[in-house]
Design a binder for these strands. Sequence first.
DNA 1: CAGACACAAGAGCACTGCTCTCTTTTTCCA
DNA 2: TGGAAAAAGAGAGCAGTGCTCTTGTGTCTG
Lengths: 234, 234
Amino acid sequence: MTYARVVNASRTARERARAELVSEITAAARRQLAETGAAALSMRAVSRELGMVSSALHRYFPTRDDLLTALIVQSYDALADALDAAAADVAEPAGRWRAIAGAVRSWALSHPHEYALIYGSPVPGYRAPADTVPAAGRVIAPFARLLADAHAAGALHAGAATAGPPADLERLRAALETPDLSDDALLAAVTAWTGLFGHVSFELFGQFQNVFDERDALFAATVDRLGRLAGFVP
Amino acid sequence: MTYARVVNASRTARERARAELVSEITAAARRQLAETGAAALSMRAVSRELGMVSSALHRYFPTRDDLLTALIVQSYDALADALDAAAADVAEPAGRWRAIAGAVRSWALSHPHEYALIYGSPVPGYRAPADTVPAAGRVIAPFARLLADAHAAGALHAGAATAGPPADLERLRAALETPDLSDDALLAAVTAWTGLFGHVSFELFGQFQNVFDERDALFAATVDRLGRLAGFVP
DNA sequence: CAGACACAAGAGCACTGCTCTCTTTTTCCA
DNA sequence: TGGAAAAAGAGAGCAGTGCTCTTGTGTCTG
């Protein structure tokens, strides 16, 4: 975890140089990730691109998995930025839901390897993310705001009563900062969210191959339906 | 594609021996896949387990990707078998939907690496499956039957009118062999199906970590909601 | 029965992640 | 300010990988 020191950098010259090099490394790694995917990303290739010897790279990212973890965090951040930007323009719930959903999809399609890295199968065995959890939380923030705003506007009808496990829902309510949202609306929102990513993953990972050609229209229809399920779309 | 000859085997002694060896290879590979995951599966390790030299293995699977493709096909088949078995017992739509959905999840949880192999991110760059497409089709067969039966029983209400791309829907109608199903019911079924796999993937790939503990109850609630969306659950 | 084919074995190539040692440079503090 | 300590770079090396090529042997078939 040596590279974690980057956050409070710019003290000594050495630390500034280190921080700069760390970001150069992740930039080069991101470039290779975008080109060839996570499976083909190699420490040696990254070090070669930077003109250093591979053993030196291990001083900054002791392990390939550490480098991948950094890329995962950065990918979460990039996606979260895209969603924030997309959600900022739209006030009313239905449009905002469509904007967020569309941003998820277009980010995924334009950054397929990054998307696969964070929402595809974990690359090594079972990783214990830990570092990645807060970054993952940033992604749902615009969705949480949408949920809170739509609820405040009275848009979320109660729907059928399908209660969930109480402890989990209480924690989720707190995490989303939507204190007085009903169990049902909360669960419906979760279903819409997972359904959205399910659709995007299916499309990106080839499950729609030979089945659907007009992906844009299919996605729009699915998003509308999920939005209606959650109460964003009237 | 030499190993494709397996299908019409048992002619000469040599071909029988070859077919047997091919299935021994995939069996060993499946064992390693289950233990360490697709990323760690190595031709040399498989050949070692079988007591052969690694170059000999390349005669049966010219490339590591070819071996993985065979494992993908077998995984699709195994999942399809599990779903067929689960769906066979239940007649009425709501229960059958729950049975199929539950079988998807429990197969995924008990075969995480196989599930990741077929529904996670494509392991090499962008693979063109071709061989895997028909096997993937087997998985949705029980779902297609459920859809046809529920429709025949008049269970599928029309719902709101959200038409999709006509060409795609026509092809899907033909593939599912549900000739007179409405556009809306068809699209709702697709949303339910992708939502189901979205949920299972989220759970398996750690997206629910630190958010939900009682996964069984959460899954049941989601499945009910998706089932209601598609019209299986009243 | 002889030529064509299939096969196993081994050596070898280029690549990988990672470790260890050795040298140089920078930082810190007494 | 000088010297110990920490950090950094370079290089060699190890064990492993996918894959190819060659060499010898066994098997099928015209």
